[in-house]
Design a protein around this nucleic acid. Structure first.
Length: 288
DNA sequence: CGGGACTCCTGAGGGC
DNA sequence: TGCCCTCAGGAGTCCC
């Protein structure tokens, strides 16, 4: 599921349940995620109080009151579910059944006094990792990330200044998390379509006007998706079980062979593979 | 440097 | 019904 909007939705939903709450218990069903969960994970977090949750790119960062951290990445199929505890401080896994169809992929339970947070991940490409305050400063996952697309740092002058580092197609450049972070395959495809830019164009060949248009659409599409609750593909839902609606607005992603939706365009959507990822574009209004 | 192949893993869907 | 194949929103590593 998860690109920036879906992670942002997850953060917003989780916030009200876990900020300023103590972790009273932890249950780990499966240690084998993308990275094996450290055997001290439980010991490090038990009894700790969460100060706040923030998002950086597609990572959720949990800030603890003791100045340490843990981060969560959802990979391809990770999702977080949160539920009010039925009985104070006790966990009753049976009440997840209605919202989590496949219980065997519930890998981690973080239990708070009033609620329980469940990490569910079918493919186990996601991970969770604890960092001391010192370790966190050098966190390799976060240190190489580029600018947040929704921040003011992503503007024309930043783009122009940094694009020279990327001697590759604009699609692969936008997928590169060390340039702009948080974009994934769906939003890159969609943003390029809206901007009428062919995914295979060299990044450095973009005209000033195209760059401005592209930046504008990247921001626009992310904001719109967040406002619609993200994209519910493969049953992604937010942490309270609500589905997003942005997938209904996809103009190219997954629209292979369909007629281009742009007014007066007679083109069709074509699918190709670039760097192993599906790329969708209109052969007419996104011609090279 | 770029990009392709391959890796982690499970499940859905198509074709036969 | 089952089997085999391909594909999937991420991202790291290795190799050419």
């Amino acid at each position: 599921m998860p690109e920036l909007p879906e992670v942002e939705i997850t953060k917003k939903t989780l916030k009200k349940y876990v900020e300023h709450q103590y972790i009273t218990d932890i249950k780990i069903n499966n240690y084998n995620l993308r990275y094996k969960i450290n055997k001290n994970f439980k010991k490090n977090l038990l009894g700790k109080k969460i100060n706040k949750i923030t998002r950086r790119s597609k990572y959720l960062i949990f800030h603890l009151y003791d100045k340490n951290f843990f981060i969560l990445h959802l990979g391809m199929s990770g999702r977080v579910l949160v539920k009010q505890n039925k009985i104070r401080g006790l966990i009753d896994t049976s009440f997840y059944a209605s919202t989590l169809p496949i219980d065997k992929h519930n890998h981690i339970y973080l239990i708070f006094k009033k609620s329980t947070v469940v990490y569910n991940d079918t493919r186990r490409f996601g991970f969770i990792k604890y960092y001391t305050a010192t370790e966190f400063k050098n966190c390799s996952h976060l240190s190489k990330l580029g600018v947040e697309p929704l921040s003011d740092e992503l503007n024309f002058s930043f783009f122009k200044r940094n694009i020279i580092r990327f001697n590759k197609s604009i699609k692969n450049t936008l997928m590169d998390q060390s340039f702009i972070c948080g974009l994934g395959n769906i939003y890159v495809n969609e943003a390029l379509f809206l901007s009428k830019i062919n995914p295979n164009r060299s990044s450095q060949a973009l005209h000033e006007k195209e760059i401005k248009v592209l930046i504008n659409y990247i921001k626009k599409i992310l904001k719109k998706s967040i406002s619609m609750g993200g994209s519910s593909i493969k049953d992604f839902h937010n942490s309270e079980g609500k589905f997003g609606n942005f997938q209904n607005t996809f103009k190219v992603y997954g629209q292979e062979n369909k007629k281009c939706v742009r007014l007066n365009c007679t083109g069709f959507i074509k699918k190709s593979i670039t760097s192993g990822r599906a790329t969708f574009f209109c052969t007419k209004c996104q011609s090279e």
